[in-house]
Design a protein around this nucleic acid. Structure first.
Lengths: 160, 160
DNA sequence: ATCGCTGCAAATGCTTTGCAAGTAC
DNA sequence: GTACTTGCAAAGCATTTGCAGCGAT
């Protein structure tokens, strides 16, 4: 049995919640698509392939639960719908070690990158403001290597 | 006449768009509330105080226009509605020099901070991936000094 | 047998859009 | 006068919720 699946079961039991086919299924889809950034609708479509009876509302509820349990990260790229991906780490307490995202302003491609050059920044900010930092999210916007050539230029930013 | 107002007028003319009371008003509200992070609804309320006739849809349209013209930044803190603030810099081309945000997970307070420790990160990522970076956004989540004491602890993250 | 969970449909909340009248140029 | 804009109301989307029946423990 998968490690994350075990974690899900343990955490559900710990809260008196039930282990259902739907919850396991949503977790599986997210695991099978690690590295992707799926919308709720996309997750729903993939769960339907495996279990046609599932409802969209249940997918939403499961995603929300998995996120709260720390097994899934939600990211919002301002493209109209939230996206979800399996969480990198699973420390129960302390800092999430999530990765960050490069977003192409032209083609919408999302490229994840792993880097933790923020420790210094966080320490600095923490000292200055008294803020206790537990998580962070970084997004870099630009043009991917494919689109750099095309150089879409206009007074307005490229419509999203 | 204000510098930003002049910029707005210039940029509108350059595009064959019209200089209207409503557009100037929305810009003024954002300027008068620099440092705040207003939702469209909040901007609407403030414009109504100055010009009761204005419509919410027009506020949305104006905000969108101002954002496209680079005079306003949109930020999304995942609290249900987008927020807007007057842009820091106004370079026509090149990199936006926007500031970043500390978000309190307990009280929802948003504290802006100015720091540009990302240059190094961006250079690094750019070399590695061939991505041409033009903008970035950083959000740090944690507990503000006021809330650090309260230490809301539960298995689930604090509901937003 | 409980109490939680699901699926459906309806509801919600933010944002956008269609349209006729109004306004800047 | 000609577009572009506005205000209103209606529409659009993503997401949430109410509820009756279903399912896990």
């Amino acid at each position: 049995m998968n490690e994350r699946t075990e974690q899900l079961k343990t955490r559900l039991k710990a809260k008196g919640l039930k282990i259902t086919t739907q919850r396991l299924l949503v977790l599986r889809v997210l695991m099978d698509n690690a590295g992707e950034h799926l919308t709720a609708e996309e997750i729903y479509a993939k769960t339907c392939e495996l279990n046609p009876g599932i409802g969209l509302a249940t997918v939403y509820r499961s995603i929300q639960l998995l996120t709260q349990l720390g097994l899934v990260d939600r990211i919002n790229l301002d493209d109209g719908s939230a996206r979800y991906e399996i969480s990198d780490a699973d420390e129960e307490k302390g800092k999430h070690h999530r990765h960050h995202h490069l977003i192409c302003l032209n083609c919408g491609k999302i490229i994840p990158f792993e880097k933790d050059l923020l420790e210094e920044l966080e320490r600095n900010v923490s000292e200055t403001t008294g803020f206790q930092i537990v998580d962070h999210e970084v997004r870099l916007y630009g043009y991917c290597s494919d689109c750099s050539k095309a150089e879409v230029k206009s007074g307005l930013r490229t419509e999203e």
